[in-house]
Computed example of a mutant assay.
Amino acid sequence: MPEISDAGLAALIGLATGMILGLASRIGRFCSLAAIEDASYGGNDNRLRMWGIALGVAILGTHLLMSAGLLNPADIFYLARWSIVGAVAGGLLFGVGMALAGNCGFGALARIGGGDFRSGVVVVTMGITAYATISGPLSGLRLALVPGQSSESPSGIAQMVEGATGLPPLATATLIAALLAGLAMRGADWSEFRPHAIWAAIVGVTIAATWGALQWLHFESFESISVANHTFAAPIGETILFAMTSSGTAVTFGMGSVLGVVAGAFLGNTRLGHFRWEACDDARELGRQLVGASMMGVGAVLASGCSIGQGLSAFSVLGLSAPVTLLSIYAGARIGLHFLIYGQGFRNAD
């Protein structure tokens, strides 16, 4: 496509796949915080089960691409470096912030597509604090807590199992994917869960397809375009920066992804008749959302990804950081939700 630059094509890939994720959020009700909240306090684990299916499909699809030579593990950031301190500290910080803000970055973008101005505050604050942690005033703290470390060869769960047992990565991935999907489907009420399961599978396919598309573009662009996938922290900051300095910067996959989620969510909300303008009318709520969004921005950078970046994208390649970060986010969200519901930390816990 000579009429479109490589960077523009990457942004279009982000836009298209981001729209699918946005539709999944609104029509399929795919949401990380809501999954934790429903399972913990609402007595409904359907949205938590969605994560098991999405992960299973994403892991299997991604490793099928690797096995076919269509995805090179050496080009994937999540298999090159990670910090256990960053994964735990960043995950906990992100999880608590997600509970305080009422959504993660992905969920907030989707709510913007439904007309929610409150989520716009969350998104802007999260993007600014993420960039402040990457290259701004908080970058020194980030470097002190999470020093840069990279492995010379791809290092993930499947690669570790292969080194210890000789089992091919695809076999390890298939076993893990089957376990996650099997646990998600076990005991489900399929009359209610079927549409959730379909959308969860669509999310998993989208993550795997994104890896394949960006790997192809990485090759076609003579490696000028990095192999990446969806995450919603630094790309939000990139999008804000581009809106102010577009004449001096190029579009990226992440920018397309951010706009795609908003567009997909708008289409989903419009189809369902759920679109309506909303604004924050409580100063205390606004303050809580600002604090939560700031915590998410810092936490996502420390953990090298958000609930989607680590929870889906990194998990799909079986990065070592993914399960540690996802569990930390879950724990942080439980802490934050408990505080919001009971108001006194753990003193009123059952």
Score class of each variant (00 low, 15 high):
M1E: 14
I4Y: 09
I4L: 13
D6T: 15
A7L: 04
A11L: 07
L12F: 04
A16L: 12
A16E: 07
T17M: 09
M19A: 12
I20T: 03
L23T: 05
F30P: 06
S32R: 11
S32P: 10
L33E: 08
A35C: 06
Y41W: 11
G43E: 10
G43Q: 09
D45I: 11
N46D: 15
R49V: 09
W51Q: 06
A54E: 04
V57P: 05
S67K: 11
L70D: 09
L70A: 15
L70R: 13
D75G: 14
S83W: 00
I84T: 13
V85Y: 15
A89T: 12
F94M: 09
A101Y: 01
A101F: 02
C104E: 01
F106G: 07
A110R: 01
A110C: 00
F117L: 00
G120M: 03
V121W: 00
V124K: 08
T133Q: 04
I134C: 11
I134F: 15
G136P: 03
G136W: 04
L141R: 08
R142W: 09
P147V: 01
G148H: 12
G148N: 15
V161A: 08
G163F: 04
T165M: 14
P168M: 08
A173W: 03
A177Q: 05
A181W: 08
A181S: 11
G182Y: 00
D189E: 14
D189C: 14
F193E: 02
F193C: 03
F193L: 03
R194D: 15
A197F: 01
W199T: 10
A201S: 14
G204D: 03
A208F: 07
T210Q: 01
L217Q: 02
S224V: 14
I225H: 12
T231V: 15
T231I: 15
T231M: 12
T239G: 11
I240A: 03
F242C: 10
A250C: 11
A250D: 12
V258A: 08
V261T: 13
F266K: 07
F266H: 13
L267T: 08
N269F: 06
W277V: 06
W277Y: 09
E278A: 02
C280T: 00
D281Q: 00
A283G: 01
R284L: 00
Q289I: 00
A293V: 07
A293T: 04
G299D: 04
A300R: 01
V301C: 02
A303N: 00
S304K: 10
I308F: 11
Q310V: 06
G311I: 14
A314T: 08
L318M: 10
S328L: 05
G336V: 09
G345Y: 06
G345E: 04
